[in-house]
Design a binder for these strands. Structure first.
Lengths: 199, 199
DNA sequence: TGTCTACCATACGATACCGTATGGATAGAT
DNA sequence: ATCTATCCATACGGTATCGTATGGTAGACA
């Protein structure tokens, strides 16, 4: 976390936030303490309290940073694939990267302990679900099936990052799981019109 | 948490552990502090340090209690259904109860912050997976499919409790989700021999 | 009845963290 | 060259929590 600090480097708000996000992702919310961050940044608390009113101020900024940076899973409009299958594949690719998703897990854990954070995180998740549902519709699922599948896919994603951030050996299965899931969903979408999967 | 304490009630180790487990499930690991527990139990720290060497001692005891009490999802041998479909249904029933699973979530969160806890939790999860895989085999899946489905079901469960413990409105979908999942898996098991689901 | 054991209350020191106060350093403007 | 705004260092007081020390109490038991 910014170890290449010479001597009299001056920091700005974003430096603190970036560092704090890293700590949050790797060590959890309880590890993001001002003196801990200051130590990592090789600077004193004085700097922190210049840029932030208090610790709550930092935490609020972090949540906002996550909200604005991770909605729709960072699916940038520029590099969106035109074909739905490609969008699905790239989404799976993104989500199977544990290090990129570890921040999500930390945020979710935080949301569990703070009511207000929980509400805001839920909002983001609704938007993610909607995004996913749209992709499924474009892949070829019926609206009802798209809804059902997007819900299931969300749960699988949540379960996957939860487990992968706890068990390093489980992480290795990421790519193969991603491929299997991708294959499975694409196959299912071909059968979508035939009502094979529904009772 | 033991509010019905008269006056000179004496506690034992298990009382502290039970109280601590409740706090862990509802407020997270950071809330299980000795003075906090003492307050809830309406007793002083002196009692705690009589029964436990230190806080670590309590945490270790809690982990052990979880291990011995929640392996195989508390599927008690006595009340096991004989038919596999019934076992599957009762398992789904159990897992869709969020309050019962909230302890799991807290333990998982703890596991993410502590390497050693993570390893032990992973062991339990392996046994749970094996149990699930067995159920799927008995339902009618081929061994390969049983393995694949048990993995997926584990992820769905993890994702479900993760989300349900954060979003109260999501909790309401528990029963319907459980029913849908149950229906879906049973339907899929009927097609298992036909290799319809695999590409 | 006196004593002993098991259990608890209370006071204490140590540590970690928060936020404030106050002064120092540095870079750019004038 | 000086001034000013910006940013940082350090010392401090306050609070929460840990674990210890030391003494108190209640019931079992001789």
């Amino acid at each position: 976390m910014r170890a290449n600090r010479e001597h009299a480097t001056r920091l700005e708000r974003s430096d603190w936030i970036r560092c704090a996000m890293g700590v949050l992702a790797s060590e959890g919310r309880e590890a993001v303490r001002v003196e801990n961050l200051a130590k990592k940044l090789r600077i004193s608390k004085g700097s922190f309290y210049w840029h932030f009113r208090d610790r709550e101020d930092l935490l609020a900024a972090m949540l906002e940073a996550w909200e604005s940076g991770h909605v729709d899973w960072n699916v940038d409009e520029r590099e969106v694939h035109r074909d739905p299958a490609g969008r699905w594949a790239s989404l799976v690719e993104l989500l199977s990267n544990v290090t990129k998703s570890s921040l999500d897990v930390a945020i979710f854990s935080w949301a569990r302990e703070d009511e207000k954070v929980g509400q805001r995180v839920s909002e983001i998740e609704k938007r993610r679900s909607a995004h996913l549902e749209q992709v499924f519709r474009e892949i070829g699922f019926t609206p009802a099936q798209a809804e059902e599948w997007s819900q299931s896919a969300m749960l699988v994603y949540l379960g996957w990052v939860d487990r992968a951030t706890r068990d390093a050996t489980f992480r290795e299965f990421g790519p193969s799981l991603a491929e299997a899931l991708s294959r499975f969903v694409l196959a299912a979408s071909c059968l979508a019109g035939q009502e094979v999967l529904r009772q």
